[in-house]
Design a protein around this nucleic acid. Structure first.
Length: 731
RNA sequence: GCCGGAGUGGCGGAACUGGCAUACGCGAUCGACUCAAAAUCGAUUGCCCUUGCGGGCUUGUGGGUUCGAAUCCCACCUCCGGCACCA
């Protein structure tokens, strides 16, 4: 019998799967659908088609494929689709550099992914394939935008936004890392511009509480999202400036320290700043300070060991709990984006206020005693962040601060000077981009009617062909005059199209629903079909999407559920965040020359060996180091499996009885089932099957040798589907 | 600073609910086959002492609970990840 020839058998089975459409599943009610089977939706994050697939893609899809096969073997009807997140900046930047239209580069890359997915033998239902840059898809992205717009969940407003000077576009807060553009690393500046937002903050509480609806998500991903949403409970308390007759509300998480507030600080961007100092001696100095801060980058301003700076306003506000007049300042350690852009400063119990008070020689008052009585009555141990009995707080003296907290808020509330409040770090999602290669925002500006949504029956608003992709501070689409000039859908007068496109994260926030009903041209999806397949039972992807993509997808799912389009509240019941493949201890990159090109290894050793190695190398969720020597171990195993199978293919099919090998085979089945099915462990089942194969080759005379071989072949099928199918034919 | 995760042989890692620590793979040593090499097959391989028989030690460190701890509890050390002038 011939030896193991991966190239031959892999080609053979890939042809069979393509011809027989083996992995296609029908929707409920359609011919071929099997209502007796439970459904399982296995999904890997759709790739961004830029250049060639790399080994990280291979790992991701190998994980998903193993789980998909495993579920099929356990009687599930498995939907396992594929698509491309094909709008976005890299293709556009390439277009600016080379003049090649983004569509051409994107579609070339998609073709490469399509070829390689087939050569990897991933069990994809190709009948559901989609690409987000096609009008058939983005038509419904636009439709969803309009749904949100109608319900006030999409809105346009002028706002200070993060602007990347190099990409000449606005970025979402989430795309700014350390004050720099996530994509190109350029320092981000702030600008005031009219932008489109989705009201994600309306969903902040549900995004937090619905973690409970999830079956299994990695703890650190939940933590990252929780931190990102940044919910703080506290109170909003009003301080009044009598001189200009203005109320200044502040948000505080520590109303119990109100008696210790000895000064008051506004952010440099605070809108009332001008009124406060107009015509006063402080005016010039304040203006100069504000301008200086404005020139600084977010990174400079947020630097860790930065000294406190600020300017006194020469005005004061009244502390509502004790009627004391306290001086006002402007200082850049107060952020306009959080809370009300103004704070009460309690230097005795807050380290930042403490630093500022020291620098400006302001009074520091202790209002909570420390646990150490030695420290209690002087300045030792300040600022004090702990709990204890209240002092210097009028009628609250002696009470524990945690109890006084509630009473102080209730007292303020009864007098209309404050109320309980919740604040979030999360901002609304900025979705407009001044770029070409994205889904056009489907609205029209009319002098008479204002912002008018494009009627659903006129969708898609197709992207026009243009010549020059370079951004000039506004979308390149603005140059397509014929396209921009249109009629108002409401009054018929001349009107202009919105020239911004949508953030590509909008595209990828609902694609997993479209897979359920990908060819629907009357709706983004049929609700019944979507409700049947969703939620995704197992989602797999890189940890880099722990916040952005996953939170946006959760938000949009909830929004769609709210507008009556969906039943589920959470799109992804279980999540795997797969680790990175490194080489020579470092992330692979062309400049380091340590890149593994999957194509080359697959050509030489076959897809089965590559995929199995990536899963065997360690726990899927951990980073792992690619080592050629380790890879050879898998190649050896596959050859051994082949040999052992051929040795026993001719054995008589008799009931072997209770032999050591028969027991081993059964134990291996149990272990593999438990490991993948219950613990989501993919590397240990491979080890278990290797052990079984070793046992078989050590005990070729055991009457259960054939049975054990069949067991090994069938258990390895989710990992190495080509060789398993081939051997199955021989056994 | 806050939050989360992890520390097991020469290396990647396994050990599910407290029950044979180190499965499986890599590497290494020896042997078989071969003119030879590769491939393959077999044996050995946690550490220390011992020619051998055998003995002692071992899951980051120190303590604790338990008949029994990599696993549970307390304290500490180290590493990784996220957030961070968020009031």
């Amino acid at each position: 019998m011939a030896g193991y020839e991966p190239k031959e058998i892999e080609g053979k089975w890939q042809r069979i799967w393509a011809e027989e459409k083996t992995w296609e599943v029908a929707n409920p009610g359609q011919p071929g659908s099997d209502p007796s089977k439970p459904k399982a939706y296995v999904l890997e994050m759709l790739p961004y088609p830029s250049g060639e697939p790399h080994v990280g893609h291979l790992k991701c899809y190998a994980v998903g494929d193993a789980i998909a096969h495993f579920r099929r073997r356990h009687g599930f009807e498995v939907i396992h689709p594929m698509g491309y997140d094909s709008f976005g900046l890299p293709a556009e930047n390439n277009a600016i550099k080379t003049g090649e239209p983004p569509r051409v580069a994107t579609e070339r890359s998609i073709a490469s992914f399509q070829r390689q997915f087939r050569e990897w033998g991933i069990s994809i239902d190709w009948s559901r394939e989609l690409a987000t840059h096609t009008p058939e898809y983005y038509r419904w992205t636009q439709w969803i935008f309009l749904q949100l717009f109608e319900r006030g969940l999409a809105y346009r407003t002028e706002a200070p936004v993060q602007w990347c000077p190099k990409d000449a576009t606005v970025l979402a807060n989430e795309q700014v890392v350390d004050g720099r553009c996530e994509r190109c690393g350029t320092e981000v500046v702030q600008r005031n511009l009219e932008q489109w937002f989705f009201r994600t903050t309306d969903y902040a509480d549900r995004l937090l509480s619905d973690f409970e609806l999830l079956e299994s998500w990695p703890e650190h991903v939940i933590t990252m999202q929780r931190n990102w949403i940044g919910r703080s409970e506290g109170a909003e308390v009003t301080f009044r400036c009598e001189e200009v007759e203005l109320d200044f509300p502040v948000f505080t998480t520590r109303p119990d320290t109100l008696f210790g507030a000895t000064f008051f600080v506004l952010a440099p961007e605070h809108p009332e700043l001008g009124r406060l100092v107009a015509g006063t001696p402080a005016e010039d100095e304040v203006r100069e300070y504000v301008n200086r801060v404005g020139r600084e980058s977010a990174e400079e301003r947020g630097a860790e060991d930065r000294e406190k700076t600020g300017v006194p306003l020469g005005r004061s506000v009244v502390n509502p709990v004790n009627g004391e007049s306290i001086p006002m300042f402007v200082a850049d350690y107060v952020l306009m984006e959080y809370g009300t852009g103004a704070i009460m400063a309690v230097p005795g119990h807050d380290s930042r206020d403490y630093e500022f008070a020291q620098k400006f020689d302001l009074p520091i008052v202790r209002v909570i005693e420390g646990s150490d009585p030695e420290e209690a009555r002087d300045d030792v141990g300040l600022p004090y962040a702990g709990d204890g009995p209240m002092i210097g707080s009028g009628r609250f003296d002696g009470q524990h601060n945690r109890e006084a907290y509630e009473e102080i808020v209730a007292w303020l509330e009864s007098d209309g000077r404050g109320e309980p409040a919740v604040n979030y770090r999360l901002r609304d999602w900025l979705v407009s981009r001044q770029r070409y290669w994205g889904a056009p925002i489907p609205v029209v500006y009319c002098d008479e009617c204002g912002i008018v949504p494009v009627p659903a029956e006129q969708l898609p608003v197709e992207l026009p062909e243009i010549e020059d992709y370079a951004p000039q501070g506004k979308s390149p689409l603005a140059a397509a005059e014929d396209w921009v000039a249109t009629e108002c859908p409401r009054c018929g007068a001349a009107a202009r199209r919105e020239t911004d496109t949508m953030d590509t994260f909008v595209d990828s926030s609902w694609y997993f629903i479209r897979y359920a009903d990908p060819h629907n041209d009357e709706a983004p999806f049929d609700r019944q079909i979507a409700d049947y397949w969703l939620p995704v039972n197992q989602y797999i992807g890189g940890i880099e999407h722990a916040i952005l993509h996953l939170m946006y997808a959760r938000f949009l799912t909830k929004a769609l559920a709210d507008v009556g389009q969906l039943a589920v509240q959470e799109p992804f019941a279980n999540l795997f965040a797969q680790g990175m493949i490194t080489r020579d201890g470092a992330k692979m990159s062309k400049s380091k020359g340590n890149v593994i090109v999957p194509d080359e290894y697959i050509e030489r050793y076959g897809a089965d060996a590559c995929r199995m190695y990536l899963l065997f190398i360690g726990p899927v969720e951990q980073d792992a180091e690619w080592q050629d020597a380790g890879f050879e171990g898998i190649v050896r195993f596959l050859h051994r499996l082949w040999r052992v199978s051929m040795d026993h293919a001719g054995d008589p099919e008799v009931e072997p009885g209770d032999t050591p090998l028969a027991r081993k085979a059964h134990a291996t089945i149990d272990k593999v089932t438990d490991d993948i099915g219950r613990r989501f462990s993919l590397n240990t089942p491979i080890a278990a099957v290797m052990e079984l194969v070793n046992e078989i080759s050590r005990n070729p005379e055991d009457p259960a040798a054939r049975l054990a071989t069949e067991t090994a072949v069938s258990l390895i099928q989710p990992y190495a589907s080509h060789i398993a199918e081939e051997l199955w034919e021989h056994l």
